[in-house]
Amino acid sequence: MSLTIDNLNSTQIDVLKEIGNIGAGNAATALSKMISKRVDMDVPKVNILEFRDVADLVGGPEAFVAGIYFKVSGDITGSIMFLIDINSCKFLIDMLIGGLDFGVIGEQLNAMQISALQEIGNILASSYLGSLSSLTGLNMVISVPSLTLDMAGAILSVPVILFGQVGDKVLLIETDFIEGSNHVKGNFFLIPDEESFEILLKSLGVL
């Protein structure tokens, strides 16, 4: 049987948790530099979930969220997705470009706001992947970001389908960034392709 999220042992899960931790730490530092403010973070939670439970973690399948999606190429291939709830999005955009003027659900963001959000995703994903790359010695490159604002369930269908090709569970890293009294809650999906998952675990010395 090939190696999938469904049949990892506890050591392998611990290692993935630690990667999540280090990656999120780097992402928090990057975020802090970007907005020139101190950013703290909670210890990330690494969850291995059944498909049906994934959407509940982000406020239910109909919650309005932003998804920022990247393809990963290089020594390992796969995808990365950030899911950020709409309030955190507003806060991040406001931090970066200020003068935010959108609130109604379903209202379109303007090009500048979309660009700002994509750039935030870009920096977070790059710092995340950068730490993973230096830990493993593997070369990884991310594509340009693609952003969608819609129902959580619909956005989540993308990573869930990718995971669904090899198993029945999803690996999700939940991070909480804190700036002053503001919490930015982000969910991060690392989705290596089937063959890449083995390469990744081998390079981390747990396979």
Binding site: F51, A152, G153, S157, V160
Partner: peptide
């Protein structure tokens, strides 16, 4: 009805699934 899930009902039940994306 959740993701990768199915259900049936007699009249007058209403079946719903939330947040269909590429599914």
């Amino acid at each position: 009805v959740g993701m990768a899930d199915m259900n049936c009902t007699y009249h007058p039940g209403i079946l719903t699934t939330l947040g269909l994306g590429s599914c």
